[in-house]
Amino acid sequence: MSWLASVIGFLPLLVKGALVTLEITLLAIILSAIISFIIGLMRLSKHRTVRIIATMYVEVLRGTSLLVQLFWLYFALPMLLDVQIPAMTAAILALGMNYGAYGSEVVRSSILSVPRGQYEAATALNMGPWLRMRRIILPQALSLMLPSFGNLQIELLKGTSLVYLITLTDLTYQGMLLRTYDSSSTAQIFAALLIMYFILSYALTLLIRFAERRMARGRA
């Protein structure tokens, strides 16, 4: 009972941190989705320069540490520009740009997976490239993207645990703060963190599965 009482006593601060984590996650997901589609479509461009720029973006963002990118945006870039970037903005940018690079590969591969006959049929109907992409290709590719996008969003949620290092009062920050004041309850604190991260990630999983079912029903 004392173990349970300790966990219940921690909940108000942990819930406060979970709300910050949820805010960062949702905003970063929106940004990463936008970047995923922009860079993914750029990698399919007929123009070599556009493809090179998109490829460089993907390789640099995937080939470097998310933590270093976060530190660069929050500590290094403001020194170069002489402008202080808010911690929340730096966190959303770092997460959105990093997972957007991974998501662009999902977009690119899903579009390429659409049968070639669909392109030919749309061309036969005298559809232009953008109309063909919007009306024929993307609706089919979206159903292929959702499972991989779902995995990326859950990874993004777990990646938010790094933002406490730039002083954001997220779920991990609150847990570390509680541990500072009561190190004897370390096990209870980290157990509560595990449970809360699981609840958040499982909620995301359910939303993604719901979207997959709706998409499958629409195709049927």
Rank of each mutant, 00 (worst) to 15 (best):
M1T: 13
S2Q: 14
S2L: 13
W3L: 05
L4K: 12
A5H: 14
A5L: 11
S6F: 11
G9C: 04
F10Y: 11
F10L: 01
L11M: 10
L11D: 04
E23G: 15
E23Q: 13
M42N: 09
R43T: 08
L44G: 14
K46W: 07
R48F: 02
M56P: 09
Y57G: 15
G63S: 10
G63C: 06
T64Q: 07
W72Y: 15
L73T: 14
F75H: 07
L77S: 05
L80H: 15
D82F: 15
M88T: 14
I92A: 05
G100H: 02
A101Q: 03
E105C: 10
V106T: 09
L112C: 06
S113W: 11
S113D: 04
R116P: 05
Y119A: 00
A122P: 07
T123Q: 11
G128A: 08
G128Y: 08
L131R: 09
I137M: 01
A141I: 01
L142Q: 04
S143R: 14
L144H: 14
L144I: 05
M145E: 00
L146E: 00
S148F: 07
N151G: 14
L152A: 09
L152N: 11
Y164W: 08
D170Q: 07
D170R: 08
T172Y: 11
M176V: 09
R179W: 14
S183I: 07
S183E: 13
S185T: 03
I189Q: 05
A191I: 04
I195D: 09
M196T: 09
F198C: 02
S201A: 12
L204S: 05
L204H: 04
R209K: 09
R213E: 02
R214Q: 06
R214L: 06
G218Y: 14
R219Y: 12
A220V: 03
